[in-house]
Amino acid sequence: MKWTIPNALTVLRLLAAPGVPVMFLYFHRPWADWFALALFIGAAVTDWFDGYLARLWKQESRFGAMLDPIADKAMVVIALLVLTGYSGMNPWLILPATVILFREVFVSGLREYLGASAKLLKVTKLAKWKTTAQMVAIATLFLGTGLEYLNGVAMQGMTTQEYADAVTAGLADPVRACGKRDCASLAGDVGLVLIWIAAVLTIMTGWDYFRKSLPYLQDKQQ
Score class of each variant (00 low, 15 high):
1 M>L: 15
5 I>M: 07
6 P>Y: 11
6 P>M: 11
8 A>E: 06
8 A>V: 12
9 L>F: 01
11 V>S: 11
13 R>I: 06
16 A>K: 00
16 A>E: 07
18 P>S: 02
19 G>K: 00
20 V>G: 04
22 V>K: 02
23 M>W: 03
23 M>C: 13
25 L>E: 07
27 F>Q: 05
29 R>M: 10
29 R>W: 03
32 A>V: 02
32 A>Y: 01
34 W>G: 12
35 F>L: 15
38 A>P: 02
41 I>D: 06
42 G>F: 00
42 G>S: 02
43 A>K: 00
44 A>W: 00
45 V>R: 09
45 V>S: 07
46 T>P: 12
47 D>A: 03
47 D>L: 01
48 W>N: 05
49 F>K: 13
55 R>P: 10
55 R>I: 10
56 L>S: 09
57 W>A: 14
58 K>I: 13
58 K>C: 13
59 Q>P: 10
60 E>G: 15
60 E>P: 10
61 S>G: 09
63 F>Q: 10
65 A>R: 07
70 I>V: 07
71 A>R: 06
72 D>G: 07
74 A>Q: 05
75 M>N: 09
76 V>C: 15
77 V>D: 12
77 V>K: 04
78 I>H: 05
80 L>W: 10
80 L>P: 13
82 V>S: 08
82 V>G: 13
84 T>N: 09
85 G>F: 04
87 S>I: 02
88 G>E: 09
88 G>Q: 09
95 L>F: 07
95 L>Y: 11
97 A>I: 01
98 T>M: 10
98 T>C: 13
104 E>C: 13
109 G>Y: 01
110 L>I: 05
112 E>K: 14
113 Y>P: 14
114 L>F: 06
116 A>G: 08
120 L>Y: 03
120 L>G: 09
121 L>T: 10
122 K>F: 12
125 K>G: 08
125 K>H: 15
126 L>K: 15
126 L>W: 14
128 K>T: 13
129 W>Q: 02
130 K>F: 11
133 A>H: 03
133 A>F: 01
134 Q>S: 06
136 V>R: 01
137 A>D: 06
137 A>V: 12
138 I>P: 06
140 T>L: 11
141 L>D: 14
145 T>Q: 07
145 T>Y: 01
146 G>L: 01
147 L>W: 08
150 L>S: 10
151 N>T: 10
152 G>V: 01
152 G>S: 02
152 G>R: 00
153 V>L: 05
154 A>I: 12
155 M>A: 14
155 M>P: 14
158 M>R: 15
158 M>H: 09
159 T>I: 08
160 T>R: 15
165 D>E: 15
166 A>M: 02
166 A>V: 11
171 L>F: 11
174 P>W: 01
174 P>S: 14
175 V>Y: 00
176 R>I: 15
181 R>F: 05
181 R>L: 02
182 D>I: 07
182 D>C: 08
185 S>V: 10
187 A>N: 00
187 A>L: 03
191 G>I: 05
193 V>A: 13
193 V>T: 09
195 I>M: 03
203 I>C: 12
205 T>R: 14
206 G>R: 05
208 D>W: 04
209 Y>Q: 12
209 Y>C: 09
211 R>D: 13
212 K>I: 08
213 S>P: 07
215 P>R: 05
215 P>V: 04
215 P>F: 11
217 L>K: 04
217 L>P: 11
217 L>M: 13
217 L>E: 12
218 Q>M: 08
